[in-house]
């Protein structure tokens, strides 16, 4: 005779057998993501457009050139070209053997919390790359701290993401020495808990770092203040070699 658990499992299988994901689900997800990105981009552009018009009154139209009497600064980044190149299917390359993991890509890590070591995991997309740290050095184990670097072309996307958090009133601006950053708990559902504490650090116009604690690791600290203090210490220790 089946156990109650087995019966529940069978009933759930029967109940869901007729459910199928919509064929256009992926398309809808990507379309929605693009739409949100465009909205964030437009908001960022609107915020960065500074127009100073001197008398006599002049008008400014998109693409117009500032004329005498007008001083206009429009920091509008053109839309990226459409990429119709067929994708190449392959696993993303990694950063290779990073040794102790204290230097990767164009960044040096000056501080890590106690007992953390390089996880032997990394990923390298060129302008963006990442590695992580955990207790065991086993890449299959869950990460404790992950550092994601965004450089050159990917800096804009990072700015868009931060702008989304600003628009939602989520997170706060922070100062790390003479650098600025943004502290936020990213709620992506990872591992349940209270989300993923993250510090975005602006290292230069061409380089941002995204430092995250896994929700499980964050629980080891005595409250949000302690987590944020550690995130800031890691941020302080990052130096660019770009």
């Amino acid at each position: 005779m089946p156990t109650l658990e087995e019966e529940i499992r069978q009933l759930m299988a029967d109940e869901t057998a007729s459910l199928y994901a919509a064929p256009d689900l992926a398309e809808r997800v990507l379309r929605s993501s693009r739409h949100k990105r465009r909205r964030a981009w437009a908001a960022a552009v609107a915020a960065s457009v500074a127009v100073v018009v001197a008398a006599p009154v002049a008008f400014l139209t998109a693409g117009s050139v500032a004329t005498a009497g007008d001083q206009a600064t429009v920091s509008v980044t053109p839309e990226p070209p459409i990429d119709d190149t067929p994708p190449l299917r392959s696993d993303p390359p990694n950063l290779g053997d990073l040794g102790d993991g204290k230097e990767f890509g164009h960044v040096k890590v000056g501080y890590l919390p106690e007992r953390l070591r390089w996880s032997n995991w990394s990923v390298n997309f060129g302008d963006s790359y990442s590695t992580s740290y955990n207790y065991t050095g086993d890449k299959q184990d869950f990460y404790c701290v992950q550092i994601f670097m965004h450089e050159e072309a990917t800096v804009q996307e990072t700015g868009d993401r931060i702008q989304e958090y600003r628009d939602e009133g989520d997170g706060a601006e922070v100062t790390i020495g003479d650098r600025t950053g943004y502290l936020v708990v990213q709620n992506v559902g990872e591992d349940g808990g209270k989300g993923t504490p993250t510090l975005f650090l602006r290292m230069s116009d061409r380089q941002w770092a995204e430092i995250s604690f896994s929700p499980i690791y964050a629980k080891e600290f005595a409250g949000d203040g302690a987590v944020n203090a550690e995130l800031k210490k890691i941020a302080e220790g990052l130096t660019s070699t770009l």
């Binding site: 929605s32 990442s130 990213q186």
Partner: peptide
């Protein structure tokens, strides 16, 4: 499901390829 996939896609750079499905399940 759509919300979860959108959140995952926005954070895709943080998800290791081999753990994508468990990640979406968590979301």
């Amino acid at each position: 499901l759509q919300t979860a996939l959108e959140r995952t896609y926005r954070n895709l750079h943080r998800v290791r390829h081999e753990s994508l499905e468990p990640y979406v399940r968590r979301v």
